[in-house]
Design a protein around this nucleic acid. Structure first.
Lengths: 208, 208
DNA sequence: CTAAAAAATTAAACTGGTTGAAGAAATTAT
DNA sequence: ATAATTTCTTCAACCAGTTTAATTTTTTAG
């Protein structure tokens, strides 16, 4: 589901937030001081108010986005106007439409904020500069993609082999904090059934 | 769905098969002669008879597998004994359980051959050796994973927002050759409904 | 603090896709 | 070729999850 393991995202001194991205990167590759400086010089901070859009269908996704605070969803809207969440992310996760980002094609998706959110953004030219100057970052993003790929594969398998009830139970077990933070209708839009059905499910589960 | 774009996979002289992997790699990175030799020295050819297994649930996936001929499926078996296909691959595609491969954990999946199949395999230590000696391969596999990630995301979105009929129509449009090669029940196991329902669907579609 | 909007609940009718069972067709093995 | 096995089709009963709509609860904005 998400692009990265979640993590304690605050610290007594309040500085942690800035270090979150570094902490995540340094799990997989070691960076020298100048490399860190280069990285920071290529990242642009951005604040996104709840309900505002980072990307709309038809636009090109110009950045990869690392969440330092808050929560984003990437979703599509079907023929009947229903929303389906393809990707959810909180602090420590990368969210963007990689297809649009890499090919320059118009996106099929919307990305908006479910909470007031803070991001670090990197553009495609800057990312390519980063790959050239510090090839280790190829490794980092390869590993990130590996993890994301595996997480998606797990979701595909569960969508194929689990009932709605099993998927919901797995969701609250796997992402207990997230279930508290986002509205139920978003959980339903992620799991692939209606909010009405989720409400019935919860009632049934609370009874026995 | 699949790890790579399909491609003309045969050639008059019959030599093409050996070059298929090189052709695919050189779409994204350029290799010197010695680098090609190193690559080939780390790849092990393997032949797999139809219906035989490359991986079983509970085993560790020891190799990444590039298909030079034939067709593989990776699938799970649910509580009720039904098979669900998480991944399909033909010539030119990589198929393996990346989670098990990278973490060394027992796999939840089976991989077997839907046709007599020929592979090129690389083990984890050899892949790491390759990354060390030719860092460009980090780039190649990052790009491969990007494409695979995007393809999976598309599948997730379609599973959420399309009806069974729409998914089937998209499948035969996107993978027309594959629909001819594999039994209908495998198509159903990939799309997420029963063979009986697929049969009904096809009848209905052929009538109007 | 209050009004308005959004989200959640409930219930009943409904439908897309499943189940089980039986026969026909195609594929595989000898 | 022939038998055995696997796959595909057909049909009818069935069920997991949807739909619509009305009511309540929670959240948001001023």
């Amino acid at each position: 589901m998400l692009l990265h393991n979640q993590d304690k995202s605050t610290k007594a001194n309040g500085y942690m937030k800035d270090d979150l991205i570094l902490e995540n990167i340094e799990r997989y590759i070691h960076l020298e001081k100048e490399e860190v400086n280069l990285l920071y010089s290529l990242l642009t901070p951005r604040v996104l108010k709840k309900k505002s859009f980072l990307l709309r269908q038809g636009e090109v996704c110009k950045t990869e986005n690392f969440i330092t605070k808050g929560c984003l969803r990437m979703y599509s809207i079907d023929e009947s106007g229903f929303e389906h969440i393809v990707m959810l992310g909180v602090e420590g996760w990368w969210v963007s439409d990689l297809f649009s980002f890499f090919t320059g094609a118009a996106s099929e998706y919307y990305i908006d904020a479910l909470e007031d959110t803070e991001l670090l953004q990197i553009s495609k030219p800057d990312l390519e500069r980063l790959y050239e100057q510090v090839p280790k970052f190829e490794r980092f993003f390869r590993i990130l993609l590996q993890n994301a790929f595996v997480a998606q594969q797990r979701r595909i398998n569960q969508n194929l082999s689990f009932t709605a009830e099993q998927r919901y139970l797995d969701f609250i077990k796997t992402y207990p904090q997230l279930e508290q933070r986002i509205p139920q209708k978003q959980v339903a839009a992620y799991l692939g059934f209606t909010p009405v059905f989720l409400s019935m499910l919860r009632k049934k589960l609370s009874q026995q």
